[in-house]
Every structure is written in C-alpha cells, then in structure tokens.
Design a protein around this nucleic acid. Sequence first.
DNA 1: GGCGGCAAGATTGTAGACAAAGTTGTTGAT
DNA 2: ATCAACAACTTTGTCTACAATCTTGCCGCC
Lengths: 226, 226
Amino acid sequence: MSRTTAQTPIDEICNRLWLAIAERKLRPGARLKEEELCAIFSVSRARVRAALARLESSGLVTLVPNRGAFVSEPTIEEARDIFFARRTIEARLVERLCTNVTPQALSRLRAHLEDERAAHARNDTSAIIHLSGGFHLLVAELAGSRYLSDVLNELISRTSLIIAMYQSRSAPDCGPEEHEEIIRMIEAGDAEGTKRAMDAHLQHLEDALDLQEDKPRQSALSDILA
Amino acid sequence: MSRTTAQTPIDEICNRLWLAIAERKLRPGARLKEEELCAIFSVSRARVRAALARLESSGLVTLVPNRGAFVSEPTIEEARDIFFARRTIEARLVERLCTNVTPQALSRLRAHLEDERAAHARNDTSAIIHLSGGFHLLVAELAGSRYLSDVLNELISRTSLIIAMYQSRSAPDCGPEEHEEIIRMIEAGDAEGTKRAMDAHLQHLEDALDLQEDKPRQSALSDILA
DNA sequence: GGCGGCAAGATTGTAGACAAAGTTGTTGAT
DNA sequence: ATCAACAACTTTGTCTACAATCTTGCCGCC
C-alpha cells in the first residue's frame, strides 16, 4: 500500500510532506518556507516549488502569492463538505465491493483489521492513523475504481487535517470495531447494510468533531483575542 | 460560470489549454512542446511547466519523463471508470439538490437549458460542448458541494477527452432533451426519480461510445498497422 | 508618547543558461 | 543490401542569479 520507494525525487518530497501532514506532525497553518525544505531534503528550490504546487492542487497546502506556502486550514464548511464527499463516494464503493467480493478481498480486509488491532494494542499513534486511513483506501482499491480511489486518497489526507483542527477532547481516530462491522456486512453480502454501516461510520467520525459554527476555531487572531 | 479573467498568469495558461482540450481542438495524444507553448502565450518556460504539471495532476495531460507532455489518451478501462465516478457523484448531487431546491435554482437551470437549445439551433459545436458540460456543473454548484463540484469539473473535461477518442459515427453530445427531463424531475421534487434520470442520462452517454474491449482503439502503432 | 512613513531585511517569483536524455539521420562494416 | 553503431540535433530537466513583493524594525513628526 504505502510505497516507500520514490518514483521521482519530487514525488519523494510530496510523500514525505504528505506523511508529515497526515500524521499530524505538521499542524494546520504551519508555514512551509521553501529554503527550509530545500535544506531538509537537500534539493533545489525548483523541486520544492514543484512539490508544493502539486500538494496545493490536492488541497493539502495553501499557496499565497508572494507570501509562501502553509499547511491548509480547512474551514468548518469545508470540513462538512469533505465528509459529505466521503459518504457519497465510500457508500457507493462498498456497495460495489459487496456485489462482487472475492475470498482474497475478504482475507486482505481481515488481515488489515488485524494490523489495526495490533497498532491499537501497542498504542502506536502513527500506525493507527496510517492504518485507519488505509482501511478505507483498501476498500476503494478492492472495489476496483482507480479514479475514486485517487479522490479518496486526497479526501483521507484532508480528513486528517480536519481531525487535527477540530478534534474534541475525547475523539480518537476510528477504532477497529466499526471497520469490523463493515467487513461482517460485506461477508454477509448485504449491500444495503454495508452501505449503511459505512455511512454511519463516517457520520460518527464527523460527529465526534467540534464542528459548531459558532465556535470560531479558525486561527484568525482577531477572534482568538477578542 | 466560465471566468475568462485569469487570476494568475499560470491559471490563464491552464484555462486556455483546458478549453482547447475540452472543445476537442487538441486531440488526445497531441504533443505539447514547451517552447511552442512559450511562444503562443509569450511566457517563460517555468510557467508553462507549472501549468503542465497542474494539468497532469488533473489527468488532462500526461507527462513522460524526458519525453515531454501529451494530451492524455484514456484507455477504455479508464473511460468506464470515469463514467462510474460520474454516476456515483452526480446521482448523489441531484438527489441532494432535489431535497432543498429553490425557485432561483430552478430558474437558473431553465435559463441554462434555453442557452443549450439556442446553441443547438445554430449548430454551434463549441458552445454545445461547453453548455452541455456546464449543465452538469451547474447542478453540482446548486447542490452546494464545492469539493464534488471541483471533482466533477475534472471528470467533465476527461469525459470530453473520452468522447473525442471513442465516439462512434452518430453519437453527438447529449442533447437538451434529457437535461430537460432531469429538470422536470427536480421540479416535481422526486429525488429518486431525478437520481434515476441522471444515472440513465450518463449511461446513455457511455453507451453511445465505442467502448468495446476487443477494439484496440489505442494509438499504439503496432496495433494499427498489424 | 503615539502614529505615520521609510528603509533594510527576508522571501518568493521569474528568467536565462547549462547539463542530461532521447531521437533521428548518416556512415561504415558485414 | 541490411544492420548496427555513431554523431548531431532537438527537447526536457535542473540550477543559479536577479527582480519584485512583502514584512519588520526604526526614525522623525505631530
């Protein structure tokens, strides 16, 4: 799943940044100075700029002209929209997966679930974030839509940003229980039920966040210090 | 809808190329030499390269290392996948639009339909291509999902490429009739019916193409001259 | 003492030049 | 005559230097 080998040096930079953002080591709003990145990856500015441009088009970083690059800070409205898109796409994908599921697919799902459980058992936060996103990506891959898989990949990293911004005190990432429920539904061949399970799972994720419109969580200083 | 004013000079290049591809003036497989584009837009290579990189990430052009940029040639498999994604996304969008439709939304849809009819009446191919895509984009916008609108924008331009590659002799772009049917369904507030109408509309579009696996339409010379 | 303007520093945007890779036409050997 | 190797050309990839823009600290003025 996670191809650690870089195809081109610029993909390598994208991957590293993507990883840091997805794992929430780079917080939303963090400044990304070009020369700093040059020093870190020991490449030239041209490559860094190319990488930042690509990440911008996938919504992970925001490029402000003459100001520089920042890790994106999704608004509450955008956050809800991202979840709407995920429910739309993932509900359809699991439905499709249900209708033509293979034993190999099921065993891959179960194996993934075991990895998730193991990561939870040893409290490996980084792995947990990775694997819980990876479950959804695996479903997409098994459903057989390359395009929607790519879109979902973007959506998942954006979700990570959203969680970093809006998580409430006691809202960890989705545990393996709901994933197991989804797998059970797939095993049963219940397309409609699987759809509902996935939809509910994503809804729980969204509900666990602080997405109240009246809370100006945005890092607009005027709001914070009012 | 179509913002002719460029935000940044590089967006301008993207838009112009996007337009040429969507209007099928640039055929799939066409070579895009950097210096040629520099001359045409009278900009530096750096900007052209940035524009090409962005278009690549949206799937319109393919960048081959050390070889250059080409207008993408979607395979049959990719074509089917694109249509699957469109049905997934657009069915959900019209459903959502149905549940909270406003009089303004309906009048905008009707006005758009009139434009389409006018374009058909004067046989304005360029306008027809533009407006028939614009209808779907308008639906997305009115449904109120910014993210899925952006995705759909990409999907529509890719669809244009696909039509350019795989259209059969007598398969023009979707006429206004089915669009009108969709609008009628929305007016009636029949969410399920609208969904079905949109799904059928997209299916007709796909069925009108030559997407037979056994026909090696790809421009692999070895196949053509076998 | 506070405010507006100014200048220095820092950072990004752009352009031009050089290096690497690929393609094509030619030449020589078999 | 055919094929293979070589060489020149074309095109892309990358780097370095310069220009434009923004931020920030300072000074003079009200």
